[in-house]
Amino acid sequence: MPTILAVDDSPSIRQMIKVVLGPAGHTVIEAGDGAEGLAKAKEGPLGLVITDLNMPVMNGLEMIRQIRGVPALAGVPILFLSTESDETYKQQAKAAGATGWITKPFKPEQLLAVVSKLTRN
């Protein structure tokens, strides 16, 4: 199972992601903002990045743009997990390089299904 990077400024959201994906066999590493997420993404092989949009230091859109600029990370799927559901944000996320979008609050089975599809497990 590929390692998943969960980037969100909310510790409870990161914990929920771990609680949902951990029992399914996924290893989940965490970052509290986009800058930390970018640094952790560069550290090792990832199967998926799950990120919030609105975070301090570096937001999710900027982090995605930076990740997409790293050749070794260019093909890693990126899933937005945000309270924002406006079509404008979705368009910006897609333009930045996001693979998919889930709106918070999320259903555990929905997250599992999308993660399985994106990681092909």
Results as ranks from 00 to 15, higher is better:
89 Y>F: 08
17 I>D: 05
110 Q>R: 14
6 A>F: 13
95 A>I: 11
83 T>H: 02
1 M>K: 08
91 Q>E: 14
37 G>H: 13
10 S>V: 07
91 Q>K: 14
60 G>I: 11
35 A>T: 03
12 S>I: 09
112 L>Q: 07
69 G>L: 07
97 G>I: 14
50 I>G: 08
56 P>T: 07
5 L>N: 05
47 G>D: 03
9 D>T: 04
102 I>W: 12
77 P>R: 00
107 K>E: 11
31 A>I: 11
45 P>A: 11
81 L>I: 02
11 P>Q: 15
86 D>N: 14
105 P>E: 02
23 P>Q: 09
25 G>W: 06
23 P>I: 05
2 P>E: 01
68 R>L: 12
26 H>I: 14
49 V>Y: 10
73 L>A: 00
95 A>V: 09
58 M>W: 04
71 P>W: 04
47 G>N: 01
89 Y>R: 01
65 R>L: 15
7 V>W: 07
56 P>Y: 05
95 A>W: 06
59 N>W: 13
6 A>Q: 06
60 G>M: 05
15 Q>A: 13
54 N>C: 00
19 V>H: 14
55 M>N: 12
37 G>Q: 11
105 P>I: 03
117 K>S: 05
68 R>A: 11
80 F>R: 00
26 H>F: 15
55 M>K: 03
20 V>M: 14
109 E>W: 10
9 D>V: 06
10 S>D: 09
102 I>P: 04
92 Q>F: 08
6 A>C: 10
78 I>G: 03
88 T>H: 14
87 E>I: 11
109 E>A: 13
92 Q>Y: 09
99 T>M: 12
4 I>L: 02
53 L>F: 11
17 I>V: 15
61 L>K: 14
5 L>D: 01
2 P>Q: 01
85 S>N: 12
22 G>W: 10
88 T>G: 13
11 P>K: 10
68 R>M: 07
67 I>F: 10
103 T>N: 08
91 Q>Y: 09
3 T>S: 06
106 F>D: 04
42 K>W: 00
70 V>W: 01
110 Q>D: 13
76 V>I: 15
3 T>H: 01
26 H>D: 07
91 Q>C: 06
55 M>A: 15
37 G>V: 06
74 A>M: 02
96 A>R: 12
109 E>I: 12
117 K>E: 12
71 P>S: 14
62 E>Y: 08
1 M>F: 05
85 S>E: 09
98 A>E: 07
82 S>A: 10
59 N>Y: 11
97 G>T: 07
56 P>S: 09
58 M>S: 06
29 I>N: 02
69 G>P: 01
44 G>D: 01
113 A>Q: 15
